[in-house]
Design a protein around this nucleic acid. Structure first.
Lengths: 193, 193
DNA sequence: TTGCGGACCGAATGAACATTCAATTGAACG
DNA sequence: CGTTCAATTGAATGTTCATTCGGTCCGCAA
């Protein structure tokens, strides 16, 4: 293990710990001292990698967003029929949120926090760009309703988030049957008749 | 103005100020001292009405939730055809979130916070009960897909929240046309073909 | 008039926390 | 070895805040 890899490891450990702790305690309730302890570093070390708590959280957002994009692209085949691709992507994203509840929780907290407003990201981030492109393609090829592709994209993604939250809440059973049903509902709504 | 009404006024003022400040600054970033100043009372007065900040926020949740229910029921006519009722309720709820962005923001922050987990509400709250009942009725009468009404309800509500967030974000134009379109998408997905 | 009690005030308290920094380590290189 | 410098440490600092509490005010009943 090289020097630089070890450094990367520490930075990564800090971010992973933050992610984990925020899931459990929220933005408040996760002091830097706790992050440090969980990551196995000293409090001061965090400030070697991140200017401030705010920067840490914003960088964490970019980091996790990259992971999310990978999760979607992983196994996506642009040559598949559009309909199949829709269901496949829908399910893959859902699975990602289900299997990474701390990511889901972090995103939801972040976008509704003041950090988000301050985040100096330009325009839409890469995730939504890809999502919108996929919807635009669907419209052009006559699969999806002729509508603003950004609206269709956000709606579809919203249904995934909602479903993941249903799962997390745990009161409603979500088997393969139900998941397929939900994806079908969205497809039936978004596609041309 | 009677004595007791004045008292109620102060309590209400505290809750309204909290709602407003949380929209702007989040749960963190809204010290009790600021709440007090905005509400025009002394810091200590808050503790006359609320045991702690946590209780204040949880009571605020119940309070706002009641307002939300009223907003939906206001103008709902159970004798209307089901389809019309669906669109009417969808739009009314959307309008409520659009016109009360602080409520939207508060809900979103609350449900993703540790406060929510600690909140000693029994089962589902009244809002979701009513929502589910409406969906169950739709299924029984053959308008909605035969599926878990709770799933349908949460999905429909999710689409409203998503749409309200689109509006708040402000990057995508949402005219009457688009709103009707979105509600139609959800109706087409949720209803039997 | 007096006394009671609840509403209200706001300065004071103490704890929690983000951030700093002087000191230590250890790897790389001459 | 000696020097350098980045990485790392963790105790100390200063601030911010939730909460407390001794006291004031005022309506009301005795």
């Amino acid at each position: 293990m090289s020097e630089t890899e070890q450094l990367a490891d520490k930075k990564k450990a800090i971010m992973e710990s933050t992610l984990e702790l925020i899931k459990e305690n929220g933005f408040h309730g996760t002091p830097m001292s706790l992050v440090a302890k969980e990551a196995g570093v000293a409090a001061g070390t965090i400030y070697h990698y991140f200017e401030s708590k705010e920067r840490l959280i914003c960088e964490l957002y970019s980091y996790v967003n990259r992971l999310r994009i990978e999760a979607v692209q992983q196994g996506d085949n642009p040559d598949l029929p559009y309909t199949e691709r829709f269901f496949s992507i829908w399910l893959r994203l859902f699975n990602y949120y289900r299997d990474n509840p701390n990511v889901l929780q972090f995103f939801e907290q972040f976008v509704n926090s003041p950090y988000s407003a301050k985040n100096p990201e330009k325009g839409y981030d890469a995730f939504y760009e890809k999502l919108f492109r996929f919807c635009r393609k669907g419209i052009e090829e006559g699969y999806l309703r002729p509508a603003n592709p950004e609206i269709l994209g956000v709606l579809a993604h919203g249904s995934i988030i909602t479903t993941a939250k249903i799962h997390r809440y745990g009161k409603i059973k979500l088997g393969d049957e139900e998941l397929r049903q939900i994806a079908q509902i969205m497809w039936d709504g978004l596609s041309v008749r």
